[in-house]
Each structure stands twice: as C-alpha cells, then as structure tokens.
Design a protein around this nucleic acid. Structure first.
Lengths: 242, 242
DNA sequence: CGGTTAATTGAGACCACTCAACGGCTGTGG
DNA sequence: CCACAGCCGTTGAGTGGTCTCAATTAACCG
C-alpha cells in the first residue's frame, strides 16, 4: 500500500532508503477511527505523536457559546500534534471528518528516530511549519477576500495538497466535508455556504457529484481565487539541509 | 538594560545562567530600524535570524489588489523568522510599526548555540509554536466572533503578552497601531474599526490616551472577549524537557 | 504654521446572518 | 418492505453587520 507519509515528507526533506523504511515502520499499525470522533482533545497532553494515514480530519476550537471554528484540515500524511511535544498541552482539538486511519507513535520512538535521521527531523519540522504557513494564508483569505474567493482558494489548496499524495485526479478530488464543516472552516454560516456554492456551480467554477469536487477549469479557478501555491512550500527539490 | 528576550524565553524553557548570557550576547548589538520599514521581505531567504529587541512590528501579506492582511504582531522578545531556516523562503513579510531595535544573528551562530544548549533550542521552538497557537486563536476569533469581541480579545492578548515582558502597567499598555493597522489585523475596514472603538469607549471597556490603551475593568474585558490565556502557553513553571 | 497623516462622522449599498420551512437521502426497526 | 427519524442540502424573507464613498475635523511633524 502507498505510504502517504513518505510521499508527503519527501517534499520537506531529502529522504534516504533508511528514512523511508523508518517512516514505513511508524505507520505499520494504524488505528481505525470512526467518522466524527475526537483524535485529540483540547487540553490533552499526548505522550505519543499521531499521524494521519488515511481519511480527512480537522483541527478545531469551540467558542464558549458552542460554535466551532475549524483552524486546519488534516489530510493523509499530515502530523497532528508535533507541537504538543514542546507546548505541553493541546490548545485545540482534532477530530475526524471521515473514517480515518491514524498512527500513534510514542514520543520516545520519535525522539530516537529524529536523533538518528536529520532528514526525518527536518521533515517533521517542515510539516509543522507548513501548517503554520497555511494558517497565515487562511487568516489572509478570511480577512481580505469575499467568501466566494476564499472558498475557491480553499478548493485550490486542497486540490494541490491532495495532489501531492496522489488523491487528486482528473481535475477533482474527494471532498467529504458537509456544508456545515465548510462553514466552520470559512467562518460563515451553512446557509451562506450553500448560496455561495450555488453561484460557483452556476459560474462553472466547480462541479460536484456525491462526495467529489471538481474544478473543471483549473486556470480560471486559480485566477479567481488568486491562488499562489508558494505558501505550501512544496518545492519538488527541497533545499539541502545546512 | 532589561533583556526582553530572556524574560520571554523563560516562559518556554528553564534557562540556566549560561543560557542567559548566551542570549544576552545575541542581542548585544541590535540594528535600529525606522517605523514603517521592512524587516524581511516576502520571498526572501534570510541567512540570519532576526529577533525583536524593542518596538512593535507585524507579519503581513499583501493581496494582489494591494490590500494588506496582518497575520501576527511582533513584540519585544519575539523571533521573526525561525521557520525560514527550514522552509527556505519567507511566505510573508515582516515590517516595523514603530521604530524598532532588531538583532540579526547568523544562522550558524544560532545552530551552534542550539547544539550547545538544549534549553535555548527548546525556547526558540516554543516561541515559534506559540506564534502558531496565536494564529489558531486569531482564526477562531475572526471566524466566530463579532468585531467588537474580536478586538477586545486582541487587547486582552496584548495586555498579557506585553505584561510578560514588563510593558503593561496600571491596566494599560503602549498601543502604537493606527486604526488602519488594527483594521488590517482584524480583517475589517478602518471606518468600521473607528465605530467599534467608539462603542467600546462608550461602554467603558477601553480608554485611550495618545498611544496608550487602558482596560479599566479587566475582568469585564476578559468576560466580554471570552479571553482564556491558555493558548499563549505562558506557564510560569514550564514543563521539563523530556 | 502649513502640510500631512490619522481619526471622526454620515448616507446608502451590499454581504452575510437569523429564523424558518421543505425536500431528499440514508439508515434503522418494525 | 415500508414507516420513520435524522441529517443534509435547498430556498425564502427580513434583519443587521460591515463596506464604500465622501467629507470634515483633529493630531502630528518639521
């Protein structure tokens, strides 16, 4: 089976054969988690590192009045809680959207591997810092773009990120988010999401069948969303570690 | 003179006397930068680490139509571009708001110090990860709170962060941002910022004289903004490094 | 003191929200 | 196999938060 973690981490560091087999071993026995379950709770201080092997999940925070803000989407190959090793406790929760396979790796195992392989250490940090960069882009989009462009920007991002792990084909990709999930991600209401989606469909910018989303005219989508993938830091040929 | 970098980093790791003198040396000769100048440009790949010694600055991105989104506020003791060491190039710019003193430290110096002191290495990563946590909070606020609460939340955050480095006294703190700066931070227009500020003043939640902002009734401010400082990860007694 | 930048105020338009209802699909139990 | 519950998506009407454009006043700087 394809190891999405390896595929993705190759964008962050140059991995040797040893590194790849290390990463293979890490995710050899993932846990199966049902849809809509918590992977990590807010305030928790995990003693293991959790890595997305399969499925969609999200980082989220709840406001005191019970509303949810999704602050990150987790795709296969993403790392859930690398920061918790240093920050101590989680300042947000992570929950599954679809059924997921998640690898749980003890911190000491991670420490040992990172001590052994500088490339893997770099790749893990790269992954964390890319998450940070994506948040900067989301903040920018949310602050300075109307919902239609913001939504298209997210779709372009997902097309790109899923493409890296081979999950985007034929101008489309799996899209299991409900309109409510999308609303919590974009910071608007579900009703408004519905209306915006409808206009995007009418304008031919997207088409959706079932749980799949298509971008029929990619270059128009990119233009409309003002999408520049630089913030994903996906250089095919990553910089050499110093 | 007080070293704000040391003061702040003590919240992220337990620093010994050696660590403190290392940090003192790092910022011994900061550069003076005028207000409204660029510290780092977007796309730049710095070969040194830049550390805020004095003054206010911000991380920002520009949209294609020339609008600005501020995605982070940089205060004394903050680190500008630790991530650039791994990500390679900056995905956003950093510019001064006030006149600033900024230390420029060569990457090789940083690497040497981090190799020598695990505590400093941890503190630097802590600082970067706290930046990330703050962004998650900003995303949540922007998505799920009205502008008045979002603004008060930011004020509570600044009161707390500036308090850590001893720059908040008597229920107030220096606040050099213009209404336009604040608008770019909150993702609204300057006109709207003005109207919101006016209502907050009338409600007695804030009072401002010159370039100083006061929160006369702190507990009411915290309640109004639903502010919980956990996301700043400022535990007085940080977790021991594993 | 003149020039520039920042803050204030007003009017009208637009984007997004709330509340509400309805239809479609799916899974489940009788 | 049907009835039903429940979630999801769709649609409408009215409200309100925020924007745009514009003009005026206040504060700052040399």
């Amino acid at each position: 089976m394809i190891n999405h973690v390896v595929t993705r981490m190759k964008r962050g560091a140059i991995l040797g054969a040893d590194d790849r087999s290390h990463l293979d071993a890490l995710i050899a026995e993932p846990r199966e988690l049902a849809a809509h379950t918590e992977i990590i709770a807010e305030g928790e201080a995990p003693t293991d590192l959790r890595i997305m092997v399969e499925g969609f999940a999200c980082r989220y925070k709840l406001t005191r009045d019970g509303r949810r803000a999704i602050v990150g989407l987790m795709l296969p190959g993403d790392i859930c809680d690398f920061h918790a090793k240093i920050l101590g406790s989680m300042d947000h929760a992570i929950g599954t959207i679809t059924e997921c396979r998640v690898a749980f790796v003890a911190h000491r195992t991670i420490d040992a591997i990172m001590a052994e392989s500088q490339a893997i250490a770099k790749a893990f940090w790269w992954s964390t810092l890319v998450d940070e960069s994506i948040m900067r882009q989301w903040l920018t989009s949310k602050g300075r773009m109307r919902t239609d462009r913001q939504m298209m920007h997210l779709f372009c991002e997902l097309y790109t990120r899923l493409g890296v792990v081979g999950l985007a084909h034929d101008h489309g990709f799996p899209f299991p988010l409900t309109q409510q999930d999308l609303a919590d991600t974009l910071g608007v209401t579900q009703v408004h999401v519905q209306r915006v989606i409808e206009t995007l469909r009418r304008d031919g910018l997207i088409s959706d069948q079932g749980r799949r989303l298509n971008l029929p005219d990619l270059s128009r989508a990119i233009e409309f969303a003002q999408f520049d993938p630089a913030y994903l830091h996906l250089a095919e040929r990553p910089t050499l570690s110093r």
